[in-house]
Design a binder for these strands. Sequence first.
DNA 1: AAGTATACCAACCGCGAGCGC
DNA 2: GGCGCTCGCGGTTGGTATACT
Length: 201
Amino acid sequence: MPMAPLSSRCTKKEANRGAWTAEEDQKLAQVIEIHGPKRWKSVAAKAGLNRCGKSCRLRWMNYLRPNIKRGNISDQEEDLILRLHKLLGNRWSLIAGRLPGRTDNEIKNYWNSHLSKKIKLKEKQNRGFMVQSEHEKTNVMEMDHIVDRREEGTSTRNVDSQSSFIGDDLFNSSSEGPLTLEWMSKFLEMDESWFELLHDM
DNA sequence: AAGTATACCAACCGCGAGCGC
DNA sequence: GGCGCTCGCGGTTGGTATACT
């Protein structure tokens, strides 16, 4: 396997690794406030951080950026993630783009630690295996709850036309089948207002 | 209370795409 | 067209917290 260009890797000179300190965060935020979130290598240098640009970018994108929402992923968000993952696969940045305030890293982590397990359990159950434990039963019931809400096609939807369009396509069980390119492009171009409505409920 | 297993998540790594020279 | 640099993405790792025995 060919090595990545040297420029894309953090060098030994940029020795500081591991968890960021409050002081580092502050320095990084100050430099970005002045120079903007670009040219990460020079941002790192200007901040006097012993970090590579890549690390600075990641820290900013996933933690320091304004309007970041952290933790407490709602049922609606979870539902949306499930639907979008079904539609887009592991395109975490695209999925995150449809969830205001959420980062690709957070969604990826949430998927890997929560949702993938739930889905495996659900599939297992669908294949007719016995559910083993109370914990697993709970997870399966949670999945059923999500599926039920989709099938009901109610609760979280507003009545305005755009919202109901996207809501129906997202939650209607009929879209469990193959999703068309037309649907996908329509969905991905959807205005953020629908998501704001969703979060306001 | 102590040791071990599991879950969670921040951070790192490698790669590819895009851009300017 | 080739090269180097930067950026963004997705996969993976490792440290910490929590649950379990």
